[in-house]
């Protein structure tokens, strides 16, 4: 039995009066890719943002229930948000490298968390870029502006800067929706490689993508978890009619 890295228990989430998530119970295994799918507005991005408490930034947001990461409830008042977000990294829909050099993008995390001395930074940068397959292409251009990179490279850079702070959970919010099909395929390949060492949760509106990369799928509709199970089973023999309707494209 695989370890449960993230356990979500009785989670309700409100934006003001609107309830975006209803009584969600979900266990996400370690070192696997779990995909969250569902039509627009079903709460999948909201759920993702509950896992690193990015929803705290939204005014009027309210959370009830528990989210346990490595057995610790991250909604305890004593939770150290800096530590939580260092451990639970996030990749956004639009690649958002910082408008500074490639090197500084990677070095940003280690330097804000103060765990690396200045002379260790080049090693960290190399290791992180190596892990996302950018090192060979960029090793001579580290001082260049990160916004000069292609969309795919920018997204890889955004993943690399999470690896640099030794995150062990990667939350990906439609990471390929701004990329072309070839770039998408390469990012998916990278995700498959990274799952050996990282727990990945990906939100996607693209069912083929979920089928290609994930080992488990959670289907959400109107804020409720409809079905959760291994990718193969969900796509071949869904237990619920709603799930079948969605994955066969009858609606959504």
């Amino acid at each position: 039995m695989v370890d449960q890295k993230i356990q979500i228990k009785h989670l309700d989430f409100y934006y003001g009066k609107f309830q975006a998530l209803k009584e969600v119970n979900l266990s996400i295994p370690e070192r696997e890719i779990t995909a969250i799918i569902g039509p627009s507005g079903c709460g999948k991005s909201t759920l993702l943002r509950c896992l690193n408490r990015m929803n705290d930034l939204v005014s009027g947001a309210k959370v009830e229930g528990e989210v346990l990461i490595d057995g610790e409830d991250i909604y305890q008042p004593s939770t150290d948000l800096v530590r939580l977000r260092k451990k639970v990294g996030m990749v956004f829909q639009r690649p958002n490298p910082f408008p500074i050099s490639i090197f500084d993008n990677i070095a940003y995390g280690p330097s804000i968390h103060r765990f690396a001395a200045k002379k260790e930074l080049p090693g960290i940068v190399e290791k992180s870029l190596e892990a996302v397959g950018l090192w060979d292409a960029l090793k001579g251009r580290l001082s260049e502006h990160a916004l000069a990179l292609s969309g795919e490279q920018q997204q890889r850079l955004c993943i690399a800067r999470l690896l640099a702070v030794e995150a062990d959970i990667l939350l990906m919010d439609e990471p390929c929706s701004a990329l072309d099909p070839i770039a998408t395929e390469r990012i998916e390949e990278l995700m498959r490689k990274l799952q050996k060492n990282y727990t990945i949760v990906i939100v996607t509106h693209n069912m083929q993508q979920a089928a290609r990369v994930s080992s488990r799928v959670a289907y959400f509709y109107l804020g409720e978890l409809i079905e959760f199970g291994s990718t193969q089973r969900i796509f071949t023999t869904p237990l619920r009619q709603e799930t079948e309707d969605y994955i066969t494209g009858r609606f959504g």
Partner: peptide, 15 residues
């Protein structure tokens, strides 16, 4: 300044 920069930074644990 695009919101993505701030979100990216905060999501990495920056204060």
């Amino acid at each position: 300044v695009p919101r993505g920069y701030r979100e990216g930074s905060v999501a990495m644990g920056a204060t």
